[in-house]
Design a protein around this nucleic acid. Structure first.
Lengths: 220, 220
DNA sequence: AACGAACCAAATGGATCCATTTTGCGGCTT
DNA sequence: AAGCCGCAAAATGGATCCATTTGGTTCGTT
């Protein structure tokens, strides 16, 4: 995707998306067209179109004649998103795995090395995301990939909150799962890779279900 | 959702969606903002927003500075859509099944009776869709449901072409699967219902793979 | 004092006009 | 005759201005 698209609405949409994913705009925050337009030195029109773009990615929610808010999830919705991921990501993996090269495996190993070294939450989120999407790199399934990307995006804020909460405590479990995943891919054992991935997602979901405080105190 | 929304862009989007799903606009057809605006007696602005709405549903594809076309799928994409449905619809069923009443089961039976009596393709498409979504009626999983609805929408045109092609020939298989699904739901055997549904979708996918002519001669 | 209705401010939705991009046709050149 | 350059028409993208809707506040009435 073009970073600096020549179309203003796409640039604005991308900027909005990054701001939400980076945590600058929390769920529940209102977005006012005039403010964004003035800040970016454009008219309200491309802002309106950008809002529709970002809304189509699920990151904001539009209400007719009322405005736009950063999408809020409750625990039930987040849990269901993980259930969907459990079913779709193994499929996406199976679409990509046959194309993985030894170079890709080396990249994955390097990323996991970094993950085990960092203690910074933001770094972890970026690295973890990179690792998973490197696994999916060779897919030829645009629709499926965009559905999965959307599921990652809409839960990003809660993944951040949860990672901050859990700290380093149970990080070894994630590392073990990642190492098993990479090893299965290295040995071209795709079936095992799919199972480890499903386990990885489900275990995270179950753990998240034990921490309702992640969703407490939200402005719904 | 409100049929005649007070917001013009939503009315236009709904009209566009219906036109595409009904087959009035075939995949590959170009949509010109001026024409739609003049036909509906509005300015181009709500048309532009409607295009974004329909694009977010996957029914049309926008290209910057070029325009909008009704989304085209090739066989690979359609096949993958069915693979996704195989994994997601049993989940959606499991979310809804516990809420099904005897009245719902009676409705399903009546719908299936109608399906077995009609020989009209358009009627079949409407009834089949009604039956499946009656099964999902009690879900409380908006995100999942909208993903599944989108998968139905984007394949509607090819389902129509395939139904026309197959005619009455193998209709008995669909009927048998529907009857088994309804019976499992009647007996609160949700596990079996999920399996029948997965089978129903997969068998259709495999049958579709034998008919590449459905995708032949498309203007890509 | 409490409830209700009307008015006002702020934000979104829509219409018109102008700018930019794209594509295709036509003429010119080699 | 074939290919390329350029211009013009058409369609999309953007800016400004006006209309409509919504929510809150204030004034009036009971």
């Amino acid at each position: 995707m073009a970073e600096g698209s020549s179309v203003a609405s796409q640039r604005i949409a991308e900027k909005l998306r990054e701001r939400i994913l980076a945590g600058g705009l929390a769920p529940g925050a209102r977005i006012i067209q005039d403010e964004l337009a003035e800040e970016l030195n454009t008219s309200r029109l491309p802002v309106r179109e950008a809002l529709r773009i970002v809304a189509s990615q699920g990151l904001i929610t539009l209400r007719a004649n009322q405005g736009a808010w950063v999408t809020t999830m409750d625990m039930r919705e987040c849990d269901l998103t993980y259930r969907i991921r459990e079913r779709l990501e193994p499929l996406l993996l199976s679409e990509s795995a046959p194309g993985l090269t030894e170079g890709d495996i080396a990249e994955l190993t390097a990323l996991q090395d970094e993950i085990e070294q960092t203690q910074n939450v933001e770094d972890f989120l970026v690295l973890d995301r990179s690792l998973h999407w490197t696994v999916y790199r060779h897919h030829n399934a645009g629709e499926l990939a965009s559905i999965v990307a959307r599921l990652w995006d809409t839960t990003q804020h809660y993944r951040r909150a949860f990672t901050r909460l859990a700290g380093e405590r149970r990080r070894w479990i994630i590392n073990a799962e990642h190492r098993l995943l990479i090893q299965a891919l290295r040995e071209h054992d795709h079936r095992s890779a799919e199972q480890v991935l499903e386990l990885h997602i489900r275990r995270t979901r179950v753990e998240l279900a034990d921490h309702p405080e992640v969703f407490a105190g939200q402005v719904v």
